[in-house]
Every structure is written in C-alpha cells, then in structure tokens.
Write a protein that binds this DNA or RNA. Structure first.
Lengths: 357, 357
DNA sequence: CTGAAAGCGCTAACAT
DNA sequence: ATGTTAGCGCTTTCAG
C-alpha cells in the first residue's frame, strides 16, 4: 500500500494541496464545510503527515528529547515522568533515549537529537568523575540534569549534601554512635553525599568511617563490605551502615546477615538514593528519596525559558527537597513502619499521601 | 551562530556538496585524504546532519519507536531495556515515548512515530478490556507487546496463565488450602492469571475465592480487601492471598496488618507481576517475575523480521518463562530468603545469578 | 573519484 | 477562501 501524501487527500476532496495543509495547520483559515470534507478524507485515506517534511519546511517542532543513562534507577524514571508531565502540560512531546550505560551511545543519541530538529534536550549524563558538557556551545536549548557544576546555569541537580545530612541525622536519632559509610565516592554526586554526612556527623560528635571497594559500587561490593564489618569484634563494629547507594546498602544487609548478624537488631543499615528498584532484599531499606520528578519538571521549565529567551533563576527548584523514607532496616519496631506509596514515582505524592488512612 | 549546513563544510574543504554527503554516507567512495579533510572540517565547524532532511531525501531510518503506557511499572522498563539492547545490537536506535496513562496521548505518539519516518514501532498498549490495533492496516512494521490476541501474528505477550499457575503451585507448596485472589480481572492479562490460578487450584483441590473491588486495582483497594479478609473469623479466613498485581498484594499486606494480623504468620500474601516498584511495603513480597526484558528483545526481532520480509514464528519466545521470586511474605523462615539482584532489569541475569555467592 | 541537478513531502508566502 | 509556487537540507542518480 503506497504512502498517502497530502496531494492525495487534496485530489480526493477536489481542493488544492495548500488548502489541505491549511486545514491541518491553520483550521480557522478554512471554510468549515471544506474542513469537514478534508478531515473526512484524511481519516478515510489514513493520511499521516510526514514529520520530516514538515520540519524541513520550517515548522518549529514541539518535541523535547530526554537522554537517560539507563532505565534501571528510579531516579531516572522520576525524571522521565516529571519531564513528560511538564512537557505535555505545555503542549510538547517528549522522546526518551536510554544510553544503556554506554557513553558512546549517549553521545550518539545527543547528536541525533541535535540533528532531529528537536526543540530542546534534557540530558542526565552518565555518572563520571570528569563530566563536561558534550557541546561547548549548545546549538539548541539544553539542560543537564543531576550535574553539579558551578559555572553553568543550565545544570540542575538535587541536593546531594542534604541527602547525606538527612541520613546522618537519622542515624543520630536512632542512637547510633559509629557510622560506616560504604561505597567509592568517585562521582560528584556521591562525594557530596559523603560531605553532607561528614558535616552532620561533626556537629553530632558521631564518628564516621569511609569504606570503598571496587569500581562500580555493586551489590556484591556492598555484600563483601557488609560481611567484613559484621565479622569485626563487637567493640570495633559500626552500629550504623550507610550505603552511598541503595544497591550498596541492600548488598550490605545481605553481607551482614551472611555473617550471622541481624539487621536491624545488631546493626542498622540505610541507603541514600531512594531507589525502589534496589529494594529487593529481605529487609525493607531505609533511604532518602530525592525529588527526581520535580527535577524533570524543572528541567523542562528551563528549556521552555530558554526557548522564550528568559533565563530561569536556578533557585526556582522550590520546596522539592529530599525526604527520609524510614523502613525496617533502621527500625527495631517494625509495627511502626508504614507503607510507602509510589503511584507514579512522583515524590510529592508518594511521600505526601500515606493513602492508607 | 547560524546553523552549519553541508554546503558550508563543502566550501570549507573546497569540494562539492555531493562529496561531503558521500564522505558521510559512503566513506569508501571518497579518497582517504579528502575524507580526512572533510571529517576535520565537520568537527571544526560542528556540523550535525539534519535528520529531517536526510530522511526526506530518502534514507531509510534506523530508528525504532517504543510507545509505553507509563514508566511506573518494572515490566515496561524491562521491555524498554530489552528492546534497547536488541535494537542497538542490530544497529538501530530506539526512541521511547511514555503516554502517561493517557490513551489520547498514546495515539498521539503512535501517529507521530508513524509520520516520523521510523523503521518500526513497538507498542505496549494501555490495559483496556477491549483493545484493538490502532491501525487496521499498519503502514510500517508494528508489534504489539503484552497483548493476547488470537488472530494477529504481531501481538506477543508473556504467559500470564503460567504466572497464575506458578503462584498457586507455590501456595500449595506452602501448605495453603484456602486461596483468595484479589483484584478486578477486567483486562485479558489479569483474566488469564485468574484462569491459571483456577486451573492449578482444581488440580490440587485448593479452594479459590475471587474478590474484586474498585476500578483501578490500587493499593488502597488491596488494603481494604486485605483488612476485610483479616477481620473474618478464623475458620472463614483464607490462608493465602494472591494479588493480581504486586500493588494490590502490597496493599493487602498493609490491610491485614492494620487489622492486627501478621504476614506471613497469620496469612501468606503474594503478588504475581514481579514489579519491584511496588515493593515498598514493610514485608518483602513474593511474586512472579515476567520476562519483560526478553519480550522487548523479541519484539525488536519481530520488527527486524517484518523489515526483512520474513514472518517470525510466534513460538520463538523460547525459554523466557515467568519465575517465582520467593520472599518473606510467604515464608515463615526469613533466614532462607536470599537477595534478588535486579542489575539491569534483565530477568535472565536477575534471577539467574544470585551474585552473592 | 568528484560535481551538478533533480527531487523527497510539506509549509508559508503570495497570488487569485 | 482557496490555488500556486518556492524552497527547507539532504541523498542520489548521472555526467564528467
């Protein structure tokens, strides 16, 4: 079946090609009854406008691109959902590309978006120690998400230091005195969490010990560290373990249990990046939820502002702050732990409404 | 900064426009040193080919589109990751659109993909009772995911009946005798799970009771049902509750606990759609993981086959079968429950390798 | 191996 | 209100 073009529709109705184009793009310029005829023919023939052609011809597109490192972390999903919602609310579409943790691929998609006549790009870059903008001089509106960068105005990120501070304050509230922080803080995000933890620890006179292992902060790394910690003699053992990621924390719980100790009875464990996809262990994990949904929305708002020529002040992140999710891994009274709703990974809802009254 | 076009590159190097085009699309046709000059100029000028133009000019695109109902279910993420991996392995890109649970939006994206000169489309349609293909005669290769449909060859779905059977077999292995299945089985997927459960129950002489509530199978629905069940006198109470979704099951656990009973001591509870994003409750949930990652890969293989003119036999889904994930909500000996890895939401890895040796 | 020229399907001027 | 036409930037013949 040959593709139906705008000319076919025109011929079918008996009007000219330009009129059909108008019917599609400026319906008010076309006499209602002609319009009806045209719309009828369009659906009868199954005509679908060729996007490439209409873009080439000059229509500015109403599509944003979002490049994500990978679809296996709730934070990225929150970003995607938030960006989708805000885009849609402003009449834009959102196309998402997942780089499958491959930085070459990330670059590939970025270039694709660039060439695809897209209205703007959101990027959550791969976590690396030395991140730089892909394009020194972006040719289209671009916003980098989850990137901490002093100079650049188009980088927005959640408050990782606050995440660290919160988790340590929780440790203190639990009566802990010796905290072990596990994971390699190779990336800025993690280093900031460590800083937040250390700052808060200093204020509370809690001792902090940093333990890294491996290059990738896997559950296996967490497991090994957890086991080693659990095998220490009682006096030398931390009473609270913070995983720099939930994956590490989940691994640590297993390691501790493999060594014969119990969580939370012998040691408390918490993560700090609010990733339900890592909550597959046998003990529900306490963690800090970061406001990814709001970050995605904000990113789109930045894009919109750049398009409109305005420069959004970075401060408009508003009240979207990380929040503690207290669960059994740091709670010796499980009855108190209530269910956490994750309806659409919108942090506001998922922590705001217990939904179970 | 004006956009750099292919002509600018040509002028810079001192060759003709066509040569630059060849350098990009058929490098072997261009003298190596000219090629080097051209590539140099391209990066110096920051030239990015205009995708719309190249598509218009006839290059068939190497991009697949994936339309997902929403990014809040692990199944959809698995599909996306699998589809991305398989696409990339075959030299294709994958663009993902999330419909935000809005069927108008789903249609909108589908039409966009159709017009975007895309090589093929994967769709996981919104769950509805009466689903029909969006296009009676798809104009581009199209595969529907998670759709059970007799006639259509381009619909592939996981074995929902098997999921039901597996969970009931597990109930039996736990020594349960009275099973309550909770949730409204409005959609084919859920109805098939119910059928699998009932079939298996008949064989094992286990009694099954179906309890629906509400339109959306929310955690709140699960909660209310769970509480009512827990409030029944002991003899009339089921000993095993199956949520048709993990969300329902998680809600049910809270409801049961709100009524003062314990999971798993007083009642066992399981979900059956393997959704880590619903595992936010206070008791780790037993469930059935469906092979979404493999489904995504298979979908892309179908697309590839349609493009190549072959018709893939529907049977090639192979060994990708649902698997039981046994966790604390059906296990009275929590020490035995081992950690479940979800490295990249690839079911094969995530259930195959305990990773924690 | 390189250059010139004809569209791809559509939109937006402009003309009627 | 509707018809006509000139490109949008690129790829691909087809000549040199």
């Amino acid at each position: 079946m040959a593709k139906v073009r705008i000319g076919d529709v025109a011929r079918e109705v008996g009007v000219s090609l330009g009129t059909v184009s108008n019917a599609i793009n400026h319906p008010e310029r076309v006499k209602p009854e002609t319009l009806a005829l045209i719309n009828d023919a369009i659906s009868r023939l199954g005509y679908v406008p060729n996007q490439a052609a209409r873009q080439l011809a000059g229509t500015e597109s109403r599509v944003f691109g979002l490049a994500l490192p990978r679809l296996d972390h709730a934070f990225s999903l929150q970003i995607a959902n938030g960006a989708q919602a805000e885009s849609h609310a402003n009449g834009y579409d959102l196309l998402i590309a997942s780089a499958g943790n491959d930085d070459l691929l990330e670059n590939h998609y970025l270039r694709y978006f660039l060439g695809a006549h897209i209205a703007g790009v959101l990027v959550q870059p791969m976590a690396t120690s030395s991140w730089r903008p892909a394009l020194d001089k972006p040719m289209i509106p671009t916003v980098y998400l989850d990137v901490h960068h002093q100079g650049l105005a188009n980088c927005i990120a959640p408050d990782n230091e606050a995440q660290g501070r919160l988790i340590l304050q929780h440790a203190r509230a639990c009566g802990s005195e010796r905290v072990a922080v596990i994971g390699e803080a190779r990336f800025t995000q993690l280093a900031l969490r460590v800083r937040g933890i250390c700052d808060a620890a200093r204020e509370s006179c809690i001792s902090v010990e940093l333990i890294g292992r491996g290059d990738w902060n896997t559950a296996e790394d967490g497991f090994q560290i957890g086991r080693r910690l659990a095998e220490r003699p009682v006096g030398h053992r931390p009473d609270f373990v913070v995983g720099l990621t939930d994956v590490l924390a989940a691994g640590a719980i297993d390691g501790i249990m493999a060594a014969g100790l119990s969580v939370p009875d012998d040691m408390l464990v918490a993560g700090c990046d609010g990733n339900p996809l890592a909550w597959s262990g046998s003990v529900p994990l306490t963690t800090i939820a970061s406001p990814g949904y709001e970050l995605g929305r904000l990113g789109v708002r930045h894009l919109l502002a750049q398009i409109g020529g305005k420069e959004l002040t970075s401060s408009s992140y508003g009240h979207a702050v990380p929040k503690l999710i207290e669960r059994a891994s740091t709670c010796r009274n499980p009855g108190l732990v209530s269910h956490v709703e994750v309806p659409d990974l919108n942090l506001a809802e998922y922590l705001g409404s217990p939904s179970i009254a």
